[in-house]
Amino acid sequence: MQKVSADPEEACLVWCQKRNGGTKSRGWTFPDGTVCQTRRSRYGKSSYCINGRCEDFICDSYNEVAFIQMSELCPADRNDNEVTWRTGLRSRQNTIKWKSASGCHFNCISPGTGIRLVMSKGKYAKSSIQLCQPDQFGCGRIKSPFQHASMICGKYKERVRRLSGLGMQISPAVEDPDRPCRVACQDENISHRFYLVNGEEGWFPFGTDCSRSTSDKKAYCISGKCLEFGSDDTPVSESEFTLPLLSRNKRSLHNNNTKIITKLNQQQLEQIIHELN
């Protein structure tokens, strides 16, 4: 028999059932190409035994992984046959083919994503950043934005009397669309009053989800900014936010459908890439 195991080698071992129950193996392995499954395998991923190890075969048009799934079994690349665009920022009409230029970095925060650097293919090489699927198993522990913020605010409480020690991720505001990417520390006596932490220490780690209630959008914190990501998972040059919750001083002036437009140009994007590097 074959087992589903956390260990990729165990998943390709031939196991024999003993008469009195239990299983044992003599170290024989299933031949290359035998379907296998490890507990780490995600649903829908194809895994096969290769040299006695259960290996994941992944759809990757850039041939960067060791075991590549047959293209016939992969979703069609909708970027095929499209023209190359000069800027690294996504346009609605044109899409760029990206090639990864770094590994997938994940800050072990959930909800959140992995981020990698990418380069465009073609004559006008541009760099950008792209969302990527992180390896959750690389994290000792996953933190929520609340836990991360409270860790920062707990440190500040030792020095600043007025703080409760709890921190939060708060909603964007017209005057500050990037506010969900900054750590806000709670006042000790007034529970709805918060103070923002200045500087890089006050930024949520890159990849922290900042889409909040706008579930149809992909938005993540990068260098203290809340960037929206498009269909090719790179930042869009212009994004529109609907603010579900406004700060108290603005509530009388705006209704719940207030929309704000944030823009990101290539120079700002390059500065972000430089900071991430």
Binding site: V160, I170, R193, F194, Y195, G199, L245, S247, N249
Partner: peptide, 11 residues
């Protein structure tokens, strides 16, 4: 550093 001069109120 923490910005104590510009408190934010949330509901």
């Amino acid at each position: 550093d923490i910005d104590l001069n510009n408190p934010i109120h949330v509901d």
